[in-house]
Write a protein that binds this DNA or RNA. Structure first.
Length: 624
DNA sequence: TGCCACACCCACACACCAA
DNA sequence: TTTGGTGTGTGGGTGTGGC
């Protein structure tokens, strides 16, 4: 366990560790000393100063070196010296010490001193050899490296920093900068524990007693900050907002040439090639988001967001929000043309595809296996296995798209995307990716993927449902009537009200896969048929109608509802029935209370609903 | 055989420059 | 002022070989 920074004592004991001018006596204690914390605190509490950086042994030859063992060529003092001083209130003199303090340690350990001398000699001899030699790091060297890092925390990942350490410091003789850096990164970083506070010029900041100030490692940023998914998302949103504010015409001038292009334009209706993002935007944005500089933000847009697609990333981010690993930042966009050959890209694509297919080969509800494939796809942890495949394939699609943008030659591989999707049964995943991008209606024709048949009904005269609509009772306080015999269920239901034996005895992965097929089927003729098909999978009629009621029949929402349902079942079984009934305060998912608010005009409680969702619900309820 | 010292590689954050 | 090109070196990963 790394030594903790000394903490100041609560009560101030007598300051016995002072010289005749009342200056604090300076002690050195190595952090590897077993009672480092205790004695550091004792010395501090009694007016002394404690150093743990070995550099002071060179710069402050008069320092009192406290140690449980002998050091080569150094006079050390046993810790009992401190105990005795505190006990008696008198600091004993050390004979032969430059400051006159008594050497409190018997001169033992000559053997170790000799060993150290031999070691250093041997090391220096070996370092002159040609060919690759390795030199073990000693505890003293490790300690020294840690202290150097603590004093220059912002440099702790720099190549040059370690290069200078290895070149300039005698104690690290025999090691290269690379090896010191590697030693720190692989073996010592987790022992760092804390760093010292420094100013903007990397100078140490001392407190009023000339002690360095220990701060958590995380409090000291390194030279470069990685872009997070939130950084990327905020940037993309800000750019979309900018375009909307400016009311720039960002439509496409020419018609889509292929089905793929048509689909793409439907998903991402703003023509990003027409985006005009001036430097003043980045100036403002960097002020509001100071974690990166103006030029860095601009570069991020130029080299990442724009090639990836601003709208596409917003959608990707939202899609990954519910994943176990959360959204990922944009990556692999900066490959410069001559650095990566087309074949390398193909290799990478090939690996991605193989990963997808491998993940397909071992579908499971077992969460531990989710972890296994989590690297490939953060979405997997949430969904049941068939959705894992879908999501994995969706990621493969994204990877392919990214690779395609990197290298035109890989466009040849594009047709494989659909093949992989089919292979991995991932079309449903596309629906999920597709839903819930919210853009200015004036700029977009994006809409939710309402089930075609429901949509058809809604487009028709809503009075067609009047004869089958019923009053909502029980859980509902609203007097709202619902089409298609839809009715909310309340949480007093039990498991058998939701599922039949068919469901409980089925492979749930197969069930979700079948749901995908049903909801995506263009041949679904009517709601009765959809209901029937869902009932055949083991859902009760009541539950199906409840789900229609919650989702308003939107296919994307329906899928999301079922995904949520399987997730709840996987995590808590059917213990939490209320969670199987509602998705609270989630855009596009309705409750009796939300409908009540809508019908009574109390829309302030519906702030989490998008205007599109409210509009769709009003249609669903027959208001317009 | 595993660990680790050491070397090397690459993506990318950040910056600068020229058109 | 904008934009694209590119340099620099950080941050992190990985391969190799000695011990």
């Amino acid at each position: 366990m790394p030594p903790q920074p000394p903490s100041p004592p609560r009560n101030i004991p007598p300051a016995i560790f002072r010289d005749s001018n009342n200056h604090p006596l300076e002690f050195f204690i190595g952090e590897d000393e077993p009672d480092f914390n205790y004695y550091a605190n004792q010395i501090l509490a009694h007016g002394g100063v404690v150093h743990s950086n070995t550099e002071v042994l060179v710069h402050l030859p008069d320092i009192i070196h406290l140690s449980t063992r002998n050091w080569p060529r150094r006079m050390t003092v046993a810790f009992s010296y401190i105990d005795d001083a505190i006990k008696t209130g008198v600091v004993p003199r050390i004979p032969n010490h430059p400051q006159g303090f008594a050497e409190h340690r018997e001169n033992e350990g000559k053997k170790r001193e000799l060993e150290m001398a031999d070691f250093l000699g041997d090391k220096r001899k070996r370092s002159g050899n040609t060919g690759k030699t390795t030199t073990k790091f000693t505890p003293e060297q490790d300690h020294f490296i840690l202290e150097e890092v603590r004093m220059k925390p912002r440099h702790r990942t720099l190549h040059l920093f370690f290069e200078k350490l290895a070149r300039n410091l005698e104690i690290l003789r025999g090691h290269t900068g690379n090896s010191v850096r590697s030693r720190y990164r692989l073996q010592l970083e987790n022992k760092l524990g804390y760093v010292y506070k420094t100013d903007t010029d990397d100078n140490l900041i001392l407190d009023e007693t000339r002690l360095r100030i220990a701060i958590p490692v995380e409090a000291s940023q390194t030279m470069k900050r990685k872009y997070t998914a939130e950084d990327d998302y905020n940037l993309c949103c800000a750019i979309v907002d900018l375009v909307r504010e400016n009311k720039t015409l960002v439509t496409f001038d020419t018609a889509a040439k292929t089905d793929e292009e048509l689909l793409e334009r439907h998903k991402y209706p703003m023509n990003e090639e027409k985006f005009l993002v001036l430097i003043s935007f980045f100036d403002r944005f960097a002020l509001q988001n100071p974690q990166h500089s103006l030029s860095s933000w601009r570069d991020r847009y130029r080299k990442f967001a724009r090639p990836f697609g601003v709208q596409k990333y917003i959608e990707k981010y939202k899609f990954e929000l519910n994943s176990k690993d959360g959204p990922l930042p944009m990556k692999n966009m900066t490959r410069r043309p001559n650095k990566m050959s087309a074949s390398s890209n193909e290799d990478r694509l090939s690996r991605d595809i193989k990963k997808v297919l491998r993940s397909r080969a071992k579908p499971s509800f077992n969460s531990s296996q989710h972890h296994e494939s989590m690297h490939m796809d953060p979405h997997m942890g949430v969904m049941s296995a068939p959705m894992d495949d879908s999501a994995a394939a969706a990621v493969a699609v994204a990877n392919m798209a990214v690779a395609s943008m990197n290298d035109k030659s890989t466009m040849l591989i594009d047709p494989n995307i659909h093949e992989v999707l089919r292979e991995a049964n991932a079309e449903a995943g596309l629906v999920n990716i597709h839903e819930d991008i919210r853009l200015d209606p004036s700029l977009t024709n994006v809409e939710h993927h309402q089930h075609p048949h429901l949509h058809q009904h809604l487009d028709l005269d809503h009075s067609a449902f009047n004869d089958i609509a019923i009053k909502v009772g029980g859980h509902n306080s609203s007097s709202q009537t619902y089409p298609f015999d839809c009715k909310f269920m309340d949480s007093s239901v039990n498991e058998t009200d939701l599922f039949t034996h068919t469901f409980t005895s089925s492979d749930q992965r197969e069930v979700l896969s079948s749901i995908n097929e049903i909801l995506l089927s263009s041949t679904a003729e009517d709601l009765n048929k959809v209901t029937q098909q869902l009932e055949q999978l083991g859902f009760t009629s009541r539950y199906v109608k409840h789900i229609f009621c919650v989702t308003g029949g939107d296919a994307g929402r329906l899928l999301e509802f079922f995904q949520h349902m399987f997730q709840v079942l996987e995590e808590s079984g059917s213990r939490d029935l209320d969670q199987l009934l509602y998705l609270y305060e989630k855009d596009g998912f309705w409750t009796p209370e939300a409908d009540e608010a809508l019908t009574t005009g109390h829309q302030s409680s519906l702030q989490y609903m998008s205007p599109e969702s409210i509009n769709a619900r009003q249609k669903f309820l027959g208001f317009e």
